[in-house]
Simulated scan of single mutants.
Amino acid sequence: MEESPNLDIPNFTLNKEIGRGGMARVFLGEQQQPKREVAIKIVSPEGNDKKILNDLKKEGDTVAQFSHPNIVTVYACGVIDSNYFLAMEILSGGDLKSKIQSGINDKEAFSIMLDVSKALEHAHKRGVLHRDIKPENILFHEDGKAVLVDFGIAKAQNSVSEFTKVGAVVGTPHYMSPERIMGKVTDERSDIYALGVVFYEMLIGKKVYAGEDTYAIGYAHVHEPVPDLPEEKSHYQALLNKLLAKSQDDRFQNATQLISQLKRYMKRFDRDETTQSMSPLIVKQKTPKLMIGLTAAFAIIAAITVTLWLMNQNPSIEVNTQALTPDQLVELSNKLGAANSFFSMGNTNQAEELYLSILTDFDCTNEEARGRLKLLNPQAHQQVIDSCD
C-alpha cells in the first residue's frame, strides 16, 4: 500500500492506506479530539469537479446524522484541496465479499439480510437511498453484526444533483435494478432489488447474472427471468422472486415489509435448531406399518372432535394463534386432536412427537401440549419452556 497523501485534514492524521477502488482510497487514521482511531476515505473526482465534491459533502453530512447499529458511524466529512474526505468507525470483521468466498450457511445469509434491511429501513425513512448495495459495501464488526457502508453515491429522494445524475451510471452493474439500468426513476425498491442480488450471491456463491460486458449484464437484469434455486434451497424461491421482480410494484414496497418476512424465516431457523437439539431426548419405537396406518386413520377422524371436547371441558386451555394463518390453525387443531387420541390409546411415542411439533412449530405456549409433554418427556418439556419467547 502507498503512504498517506499530502493532505492536511484538521483534527485528523492519516497513516497507511488499507484499500482503494474507483475514485476513492481508504486510510487508517487518528482523530485528535476526541482521541480515537478511525478509517478515512479520500475521494478525488476526475478533474476536481466542484459540483461532485459539493454533492458528496451534502450526502456525507446526511449520513453523519444517522445513528443506527447497522449503518457505519461517520465522525466528520468535508472537502479539502479538491479532495473529499470522510472519517468513520473502523470495522475489523472484514467484508461480505470475503465471507461469500469462504462460504456462509443459510442462517448466516438471512441474518445478514436482516441487518442490512434494518439499515435500509433507517435510511429510507429519512429520505436517503443508498444506490450501491453490493458485498464490498457490507462490512462487519468483530461480533459479526453487518454494517452498511459507502453512501458515496447516495441520493436524497425527490432531489436531483449533478453528482446523482452521474451516479445514475455509477455503481456496479451486477447489482443495478432494471429501472436504474433503463434510466427510469429509482426509489427504495431499487435498493431492495440490489439486496436481492446480494441474497442470491450469498446462497449460491456467484452473481445472479453473468455477462461479458456491462451491456450484457444490464440486459439480463431487465429481460432475463429470475434463476431457479437448486432443489435444496427451492423453499427460498418465492422470497427471491419477490426481491428480484422486474417491476417495482411486484417487489417488497419498503424495507419494513422485507424485515417482517425475514424475521419469520429467522424464527423458523431457531425452531429447527431447537427441534434438532431435542431429538436425542425422543425415544422412537418401531411399530408395524399396518398398525401405524390404522392408528393414524383413527387419530385423524377423532382429531377435531377430541379437540373441541377438550376445549369445552377446559376453557382455560388457550392457544396463542395471533401469528398463525388459517391453514396453520387447522393443522394445529388436527395435530392436537391426534396427539390426544394417541395419548388416550397409550401410543405415547406418537403422542410425544405430535405435542413436540405443536410446541416447536406452532405455539410454544399451548398449555394442553405442554402438560402432556411434561408427563411423557420432562426434559423435552423443559427445553420447550426455556426456548419459548
Score class of each variant (00 low, 15 high):
residue 169 V to M: 15
residue 197 V to N: 01
residue 131 R to S: 10
residue 174 H to V: 00
residue 132 D to V: 13
residue 135 P to H: 04
residue 116 V to L: 07
residue 195 L to G: 02
residue 181 I to K: 11
residue 127 G to R: 06
residue 153 I to T: 13
residue 186 T to L: 03
residue 185 V to I: 13
residue 164 T to W: 01
residue 140 F to R: 03
residue 123 A to Y: 01
residue 188 E to S: 14
residue 189 R to C: 04
residue 152 G to A: 09
residue 160 V to N: 11
residue 136 E to H: 05
residue 166 V to D: 08
residue 111 S to M: 09
residue 110 F to N: 03
residue 148 L to G: 06
residue 145 K to G: 12
residue 147 V to K: 01
residue 145 K to R: 14
residue 137 N to F: 01
residue 188 E to H: 09
residue 131 R to K: 11
residue 163 F to I: 10
residue 152 G to Q: 11
residue 137 N to T: 05
residue 121 E to A: 08
residue 135 P to S: 11
residue 147 V to Q: 15
residue 159 S to L: 10
residue 110 F to R: 09
residue 106 D to C: 07
residue 128 V to C: 04
residue 167 G to Q: 06
residue 111 S to T: 14
residue 161 S to D: 11
residue 128 V to K: 09
residue 160 V to Y: 04
residue 119 A to D: 03
residue 118 K to H: 12
residue 164 T to S: 15
residue 158 N to G: 04
residue 136 E to V: 03
residue 119 A to E: 08
residue 171 G to I: 00
residue 124 H to K: 07
residue 148 L to A: 05
residue 182 M to H: 02
residue 107 K to R: 08
residue 122 H to T: 15
residue 164 T to L: 06
residue 191 D to N: 10
residue 155 K to P: 11
residue 117 S to A: 13
residue 186 T to Q: 13
residue 126 R to Y: 12
residue 148 L to P: 11
residue 195 L to H: 09
residue 195 L to T: 12
residue 104 I to Q: 07
residue 124 H to M: 04
residue 195 L to E: 07
residue 169 V to S: 12
residue 126 R to S: 10
residue 194 A to N: 03
residue 119 A to T: 09
residue 180 R to V: 09
residue 180 R to S: 09
residue 125 K to E: 02
residue 117 S to W: 08
residue 170 V to N: 05
residue 184 K to G: 15
residue 175 Y to P: 00
residue 173 P to H: 03
residue 106 D to V: 05
residue 134 K to E: 02
residue 128 V to H: 06
residue 141 H to Q: 13
residue 110 F to H: 07
residue 179 E to M: 08
residue 181 I to P: 00
residue 190 S to Q: 06
residue 160 V to C: 02
residue 144 G to K: 03
residue 165 K to C: 11
residue 122 H to K: 06
residue 146 A to C: 07
residue 163 F to M: 15
residue 136 E to I: 05
residue 115 D to R: 14
